[in-house]
């Protein structure tokens, strides 16, 4: 059984059980490789849709206004701030940290090895941003790595270990030089 086949959220009073009512819309999207169809408020953010309706809690509430990056998910492979994206406006395939696979495995392993995650609240968003980076640029230099991480706030690490992990992945992908050696 798919993890998404749980019962839909309770419908409020006055709402028809068989279709959208009031400001409700049907969200019909691909999340982590599975088709998801849900009734929800037109104003529901993608972050709340993922966290509350689908119980995918790896994406985090950090600021809810697009300042911190903790809610980052991939839509068709491109990082999106799910806290300022409406669920209803999403058309592409969504990938969250729970949907990470072989492409992200080296990033996750490097983060583990380097202890690039302290409290871990920002980490899922950062992993997804880096996933996008290596897809576009398998062997990024330091400038590209920093640019990819520029919209993700980490308050714990000083980014040092995050950069070290990111450089390790770049090196494993065949990067011959970074402009800031270890």
């Amino acid at each position: 059984m798919s993890e998404f086949e749980s019962p839909a959220p309770e419908l409020g009073p006055g709402r028809a059980p068989d279709g959208p009512a009031g400001d409700e819309v049907i969200v019909n999207i691909d999340v982590n490789g599975e088709r998801v169809r849900r009734l929800c408020s037109a104003s529901r953010t993608l972050l709340d849709f993922l966290r509350e309706d689908l119980r995918l809690t790896g994406s985090k509430h950090g600021c809810d206004v697009g300042d911190c990056g903790a809610c980052t998910v991939l839509v068709d492979g491109v990082p999106r701030l799910s806290c300022i994206t409406l669920a209803v406006e999403v058309e592409g395939a969504v990938r969250t940290i729970e949907g990470c696979g072989p492409a992200e495995a080296p990033i996750i392993a490097a983060f583990d090895t380097h202890v690039a995650s302290q409290c871990g609240y920002c980490t899922p968003g950062i992993i997804l941003c880096l996933s996008h980076l290596y897809t576009e640029t398998p062997c990024p230099d330091d400038t590209a790595i920093r640019r990819a991480l520029g919209s993700n706030i980490c308050r714990c690490t000083g980014y040092t270990k995050i950069l070290a992990a990111a450089r390790q992945v770049a090196a494993a992908n065949g990067a011959t030089h970074t402009d800031e050696p270890e």
Binding site: G58, S59, K60, E98, I108, V115, A116, C119, G120, T123
Partner: peptide
Amino acid sequence: RKVDGLSRITGAAQFTDD
């Protein structure tokens, strides 16, 4: 590595709001 590293990195760790 930390013993609890992977659970935090992969989003598996349960924070109160989760």
